[in-house]
Nucleic acid binder design. Structure first.
Lengths: 337, 337
DNA sequence: TTGTAGGCGTTATCAC
DNA sequence: GTGATAACGCCTACAA
């Protein structure tokens, strides 16, 4: 019994007294099987505990049903929320998700993609890092679709989903002006990813255009602790900013905590704060952070429907790009509103 | 070219001027190939962009390399942290993770396991819900190993990893006594999972034994909002508890926010609070929550090493159980310490 | 060390 | 509608 623990279609066919093909057809949606055969096959399968072997099926059909999710820092609130949304959409589309954790290096993304190829993944969705051009080409050549979320890359082939980060930055400048702030700041991480930099760019240029005093500070990765450090740097300046736009909610939470608890500043009376991502904690009573909501549903929906529907092949050769708009969620970290 | 986008070992063999088996051996660790053949194969493979097809390899070797992670509410801080740890350990062990999101129902877990079988997963790790006995048997019969984390189940076969929840509850009662609290409470969710109930049991019995006034409130799922509701219920009682043990950090955060911001209570002076999980937010300045740290590393390590090393088969027939001890992390939500 | 032959479990094709 | 037969891409004896 230990020698043959796997039940194959052959076994089912034998028990049901039909041919292997009949079994196969029974489990192939839209194949023609008589009701009687079907019934007998199903019963035999049930009794034997038979399940179709997707590895073998994928081999034949040349479609594995596997979609790779490539991500680093997956335990972060924003990332895990996006991951959840993607996973759910993918499952609803009948796909199965293979999760690959990378560190922040680009070649670890390359390794992840290589694994995706080995497992004949139908598509890869990349949430962190940026693969080498040659790898991307390799994936495409292997018939794999690719989706890049919040990555900047202008190679043709992958679908790129981005947010209007620069515009968001501009909007915040306006919001601060309406709140009566004249000297403002941008708190960024050193990660230097395109979306982070775009927010900075939009904010700084708009603030300057509005005649505000604006400064920028960058430190560490985009986490809570970095936010505290950024607060120390910005709030000890000769002229203290009245409002700061944090590149990320996590930064904003750290910033707010330091501002209140260590500098005794009250938000929003003495300091206006805006974040980005709308992580769950942004809505917590201690923060009530005004922030931009990532359109997670829209992102997941776009990604999944794009890679599922077999669109025209020539379409694939073009650069496909989707630009989504984040919603500004008003809470209580900015005056007025 | 669109007709044959896949490069097979056959193509590589042709280009390298060797047989298909030589190619196969080159990519099989520990097979005997001459250095020269190996070199030529590797070169041809590189030029062609060949990658071993794991689906086909898995079919032959009867080992897919796939391990399923079955989880609901994966975006929650504790769950995502555990997920990350497991994923990393699994990857380091050369496995590839298949992520399956379930809702909280047990039959959705069953479906997930069925999928695991279809993909010939070598093992499944279950973080939420509890599969039906028959499904578990089916998995085991299909040669699949199973790990249940923080689930209660006494079927033989799966490895069960649990925490000493009841003991943790008892420890908290002692901590509260040392802080000079006489009337205490346990804030729980209605989920009623074994680990949550064990914490409650341990705490309540120990508190009673210490002669304390103890009450219990249960509401909703184990999230931030539920914590706020629980605070409302417990803090409006005729005799207000001086200390409460929350079943979860998320509950504790909600509880603390409501206590401070809506009831004007100061923690820990007027109210002592202890949580469970040690999620990242528990360390944030606004909370500084005294809590139990889940031994995530130990859990992941135990799970992965158990399902990777080919231990004796008869061992599998016994109930394997691992009982881990959570560390109490002292922060500032309890007096004394 | 190397090549040949057979099989893993499935589906697609084609006669019946 | 049904059953043989030939793939799919790979691995593993076995013989050379």
């Amino acid at each position: 019994m230990a020698s043959k623990p796997f039940i194959s279609a052959h076994d089912v066919a034998e028990r049901a007294g039909v041919s292997r093909s009949a079994v196969s057809r029974t489990f192939t949606p839209g194949a023609s099987v008589s009701a009687e055969t079907r019934r007998r096959v199903l019963q035999a399968a049930e009794e034997l505990g038979y399940h179709v072997n997707q590895l073998a099926r994928g081999l034949m059909r040349r479609e594995s049903g596997i979609v790779c999710l490539i991500v680093s820092d997956a335990a972060t609130p924003y990332r895990s929320a996006l991951l959840r949304e993607l996973t759910i959409h993918l499952q609803n589309a009948g796909k199965v998700v293979m999760l690959i954790n990378t560190d922040r290096s680009d070649d670890s993304v390359g390794n992840a993609l290589r694994q995706a190829i080995r497992y004949q993944a139908e598509a890869s969705i990349i949430l962190s890092g940026l693969p080498d051009k040659s790898i991307t080409q390799l994936c495409l050549k292997n018939g794999q679709r690719m989706v890049l979320i919040n990555r900047d890359d202008d190679q043709p082939g992958p679908l790129r989903i981005n947010l209007k980060d620069e515009e968001a930055g501009r909007r915040v400048a306006l919001v601060f002006e309406r709140a009566g702030c004249r000297t403002v700041a941008f708190a960024n991480s050193e990660a230097g990813t395109p979306s982070l930099m775009a927010r900075e760019r939009g904010f700084v240029s708009a603030a300057k255009a509005l005649g505000m005093e604006v400064c920028v500070e960058r430190f560490g990765w985009t986490g809570y602790e970095a936010g505290k450090v950024l607060a120390h740097r910005l709030l000890t300046r000769a002229i203290r900013p009245e409002a700061v736009f944090c590149a990320t909610d996590l930064l904003a939470c750290g910033f707010m905590d330091a501002a209140r608890l260590e500098f005794g500043l009250s938000v929003p009376e003495q300091l206006c704060l805006v974040g980005f991502d709308d992580i769950e904690q942004a809505a917590w009573e201690s923060y009530k952070l005004t922030t931009f909501a990532q359109p997670l549903q829209a992102i997941a929906n776009a990604a999944v429907s794009w890679l599922c529907d077999p669109q025209e092949t020539d379409n694939l050769l073009h650069v496909s790009r989707l630009l989504l708009e984040p919603d500004l969620i008003w809470r209580r970290s900015v005056r007025g509103g």
